[in-house]
Design a protein around this nucleic acid. Structure first.
Lengths: 214, 214
DNA sequence: AAGGCATACCGTACATGTACGGATAAAATT
DNA sequence: AATTTTATCCGTACATGTACGGTATGCCTT
């Protein structure tokens, strides 16, 4: 098999896939998240419904592609707002993260609140970080805090902890919009500060590499 | 309308509803969570598929009924394991909560990780607490900590914070089973202790009653 | 250039949740 | 007792995700 032809093939395929994602994005903007159906999407790009499955394994993969784009935007926005003080930089990242999750509940839900059925270990690991470049930003700022002596311990463990508690707040705010958490953004920040207070008190040990066996 | 007859009516209806829930439970046990379909359920109790909708607004309501039963069990188990030390009692509750969530991901997901479309404010509030009697247990134990002087501030706010961070850990463990969080139970406890460290450091102010406006 | 082959696309079909309207029986009202 | 209202149950139908197998078009090997 000619490698050049194969590459051209794959490029073409990637282009068509991108076109599908763009069409899906347009559909969502025009008709809302539940307005995105395989049939409508196929019609829009002039395909038969089943042809969509040449580019995506299932609908979830389409939603994931949309969400990844949104998260890339988030990471960009996060980097644009970086206070001088290292701790404030972390807090600002959390607030930005919260604003995003609360403002894009559908995307947030598809990335963080829906079942992943992929067994490949590495893939899910990488997929999480690729689908969540915001995590990188948080970790960078945690590292800055460590260098500045404001936090002590393993950067990844600290960032994961912050991500975990922020996610807890955001996902509950999304799931129970009428529960009296108070102002949503303020609640996320309150939980983040709580974690930061706890983190400042101790040297955080690394997480073991052993994956979960639940 | 005769009240007596109406009550008898409602009782009968509740019985049939309970029968449907039991059948649903059996179906799940026999064929797994995705084996529960309206048609199979209807067939099992000798109804036509659409008749199920006389007892449940939609499938989600059936899943919710199943999950509520599971959560009642959880609350019972939590109360059976109560260490003397108030802080240890809180930690034990969190561990039990974690074990439950990781062991019953489907039920956990339907209660805490799926969209609620009910607009009635009070209902969603109450529904959360009814569907989550475990929260009551956590709050009782937090109150004990406050009386014992181990924690300071508003009990509900503290309990909500603990619930939030534990939920963050559990839901991420469910969603990313291959991410290296380490031992799942240990991770939940680590996050819980983190929050407890932060909570011990400050007097926690109550949450405002204003519901979220995201 | 000829033949084999992978790939992209499609038609059909099925399981599922559920909307809609109807029919029948029970209860309430007169 | 007759009539009206209500509740229960159902048949049909539709939109949706997707499994399965087929077809044809371009590429690679020889």
């Amino acid at each position: 098999m000619s490698t050049i032809a194969a590459n051209r093939r794959e490029l073409q395929k990637a282009e068509l896939r991108a076109e599908l994602v763009a069409a899906a994005h347009a559909l969502v903007r025009e008709e809302g998240y539940e307005g995105l159906t395989i049939r409508k999407l196929a019609t829009r790009v002039g395909y038969a419904p089943m042809s969509v499955y040449s580019y995506f394994a299932d609908k979830q993969e389409i939603l994931m592609a949309l969400a990844e784009n949104a998260f890339i935007d988030l990471a960009r926005r996060m980097r644009q707002n970086r206070p001088r003080d290292p701790l404030e930089a972390v807090r600002a990242a959390l607030v930005e993260y919260a604003e995003f999750g609360l403002g894009n509940p559908n995307e947030y839900r598809t990335v963080f609140m829906t079942e992943k059925q992929k067994p490949p270990v590495e893939e899910t690991f990488a997929e999480m970080e690729r689908g969540n470049p915001a995590f990188q930003v948080i970790m960078e700022r945690v590292e800055a805090c460590i260098t500045a002596g404001k936090l002590k311990g393993d950067a990844r463990a600290i960032a994961t902890s912050l991500w975990t508690v922020a996610h807890g707040a955001i996902s509950l705010l999304i799931t129970f919009p009428f529960y009296p958490f108070g102002d949503p953004k303020a609640y996320v920040l309150r939980i983040g500060d709580l974690a930061l207070a706890g983190l400042a008190a101790t040297e955080v040990t690394p997480l073991t590499d052993e994956p979960g066996n639940c």
